[in-house]
Write a protein that binds this DNA or RNA. Structure first.
Lengths: 189, 189, 189, 189
DNA sequence: AATGAATGAGGGTTCATTCAT
DNA sequence: GATGAATGAACCCTCATTCAT
C-alpha cells in the first residue's frame, strides 16, 4: 500500500486557490481555462479532480464550511457568537468575493451546493438560538435570513478591488446591523 | 418619402421588452439569440438598434430612469419620497430581476451604464436631502448608499419565481429599513 | 417575401458532398472539422444545417433514399429489378464507401437513421416480392437480408482506393449471388 | 534474481482479455482507459506491455493465429478442413465481434497487423488447396477471398448482442456458402 | 430597412501518452 | 516493476458579430 500521494493533495489545493481567485475576479462563470492557467496545471488535471464546475464550487464550499466550523468551535458558547459569525462571513466575502455566489451556484442548485448550504445552516443554528435567547437579536430572525444576508453582502461586493470591498462591507454591515437587533415598536407611518 | 417611424420605435420596444424578460430569466449574460428569438425579429435588427450588449443594457436603464423621473414628479415634495423611491426600487426589481445587475453591468462599467447611474443618483438626491432635513433617515446616509442598497436587493432576488422574489424583497426591506432610519446612540458592545 | 435563399441550398449540398467524401475516407466517426474544412465553410454553418452527426448522416441517407426511389421508378415492373437494386447498392457503396455504415449509424440507431432504413426497405419490398414470384431468387429471402447484404458489402470496401473497391465489390457480388438464387436441394454433408 | 515471470504473463493475459471485451463492445477505437479499467491494472502497465493500440491489436491477432493453428492441427488432413475453418472464423467473430476489425486495423495496416494476417493466410492455404483439389469449393477461390469473407462477416455482426450475432452469422453463412461451392455454368443473363 | 445565413474565436471535455512516486 | 497523477493536443459545440440577399 502506497501512502496517499502528498502531491495530489497539493494539486487539489492549488486548484482550489486558483479557482477562488479567478471566481473572485471574474465571477463563478469564469472560463475554467483561467483556473487551469493560474494553477499552472494541465487542463485535464482540473477535470480529474473536479469533473465539472459544480463539484469545484462544492469543494470550495466545503473548505468554507470547515473554516466556519473551527471558528464556531473557538467561539464556544459566547452569546454574541452569531454576530461574530456574520462579521466573519463579511470578512470572508471581502477576501473571497465569489463566496456568496457559491451558495446559489450553477443553475438551480446542484447537490454538492445544496448539501454544503444545509450543513452551514445547521452549524449556525445554535449560535442564532443563543443570540435570540439572550435578546441580542430581533425575535423573528430566521436561519433563512442568514442566506439572504450572505447574498446581499456578496452582490454588493462583486467586481470591486479588495479595498473597495472592505469599505463597502463595513458600510453594508452598518446598514444591516440595526435590522438584526431587537426592534422597538415602530410608530405607524 | 414614407413616414414609417412608429415602426422602428415599435421594434425597439419589442427588443427591450424581450431583453428585460430574457435577462430576468437567465441573467444579463444570456445569449442574445434568446432576445432575438423572443422579440421575433431578425438578428441584425437587434444589432442595428443596439450595437452591443452594453448599449442594450444602457437602453434598459434609460427606461428605468424615465420611470423613476415620472415617479418622483408624482411624489412632488413629500418628505418621505426617498422611502417611496426605495420601495419602488424593490418593486421594480421584483418585477424585473435583472434590474440590479444592470447597474454594475458588463465588465467594469461601460459608458452608457455609468451615465445612467449618474442620472439616477442626481434624480434621487433631492429626495434624500429632504428626508434627511425632516429627520426621517439617518444623518450619515449617502447617495452611494442607494447604489449599495440596490445591489443588495438585487442579489437577494436573482433566479427565483416572482412570488419568492416578492417575499424575499419584503424581508430584505424589513432587515434594511431600521438601518436607514435615524440611529440611537448604541451602547458599546 | 423573399425567395428561399438559393445559396443556403448550395451550402447544404456542399456540406453533404464534403461529408460523404470525408466519411468515405476516414469512416463516419471522422472529425467534423474535416467536413467543415473540405466544404470550405464556417464551422457553425455545419451545425446550423445539421445540429449533430446523426442528422448529417440522416440527410445523407435521405439523398440515397431519393436516388433509390428514382432508380426503382426507372426500372418499372421488371422482374429482375431486385438484382438491379443490389448491383446499384454495390455501385453506390463503391462510389461512397461510408454508405453502408450510415445504415447502422451512430451509437444505437438514431431516429433519422431508423426512419430512412424503414423507407428503403419499404421501397425495395415490391421488387423483392416480384423476384420471388418469378422464381429468380431463393424462396426464403427476406427484407432483412438486404440489410445484411448491405452491411457485408460495405465492410468489405472500407478505406480502399476507388479501384480496389470496385474490384472487391465485383468479387463480393460473385460470392454472394449464388446464395441469393433459388437453391437446389443440397446433399447432406 | 527473482523469477517472477508468471506474474507478468498473467498481467498480459488480463489485458488482452479486457481489450477483447472492450473492443467487442465499443469497437477497436474504444478509449484505452476502458481497457485499463476492466483489467484492473495501472495505466502505465498497459503501455509497458503494449506501446500503442496497434501492438495491442497485434497481440490479439497473435492469439487468434495460435488458436487457428491448433485448430488446423486437430483437423489434420480432412478435405473439408477449409469449411471448418470458415465456420470457426464465424464462431470466433460471434464470440469476439471486434475480431474482424482487427484485420484491417488502425489506419492503413500497421506492421504487427500485416504480419499476423500474412501468417493466417499461410496457415489456411493448405486447407484451401485441399478443398479445391477435392472439388469441394469453387475453382477460382482465392486466399484473398478469405480476408473478404472475414470482413463481410465482421461488419454484419457489429454492434449487436451476442444472440443477434449468432442468428446473423448463421444467416450470413447460409447466404455465402453457395457462393463458395463449385459453380455450375450459369445461363447468360 | 430588414432578414437570417455565415463566420471564427473560444469554452468545455476527452483521451493517448508520459512521468513522478 | 507497478501505479495512477499529470499533461496537452484535439474534438465538439456555442455564440457574438458580420454580410449577402
Amino acid at each position: 500500500m502506497t501512502s496517499i500521494r502528498p502531491d495530489a493533495a497539493l494539486r487539489r489545493a492549488q486548484l482550489l486557490d486558483a479557482a477562488d481567485a479567478v471566481f473572485g475576479e471574474h465571477g463563478i462563470t469564469a472560463p475554467l481555462d483561467l483556473v487551469v492557467e493560474r494553477a499552472a496545471v494541465g487542463r485535464a488535471t482540473l477535470y480529474r479532480n473536479f469533473p465539472d464546475r459544480a463539484s469545484l464550487i462544492g469543494a470550495l464550499l466545503e473548505r468554507t464550511v470547515a473554516q466556519l466550523q473551527s471558528h464556531l468551535l473557538e467561539l464556544g458558547n459566547r452569546e454574541d457568537a452569531f454576530f461574530e459569525v456574520i462579521d466573519a462571513m463579511a470578512a470572508r466575502i471581502v477576501h473571497s468575493p465569489a463566496m456568496a455566489d457559491y451558495w446559489r451556484a450553477v443553475d438551480q442548485d446542484s447537490p454538492p451546493v445544496r448539501d454544503a448550504r444545509q450543513r452551514v445552516l445547521q452549524l449556525i443554528e445554535p449560535a442564532l438560538l443563543r443570540a435570540k435567547a439572550a435578546g441580542l437579536c430581533r425575535a423573528d430572525l430566521q436561519l433563512s435570513d442568514v442566506t439572504l444576508i450572505s447574498s446581499m453582502l456578496g452582490a454588493a461586493l462583486r467586481g470591486r478591488t479588495r479595498e473597495e470591498r472592505s469599505v463597502l462591507a463595513t458600510r453594508a454591515l452598518e446598514l444591516l446591523r440595526p435590522g438584526l437587533s431587537p426592534q422597538r415598536a415602530r410608530a405607524v407611518p
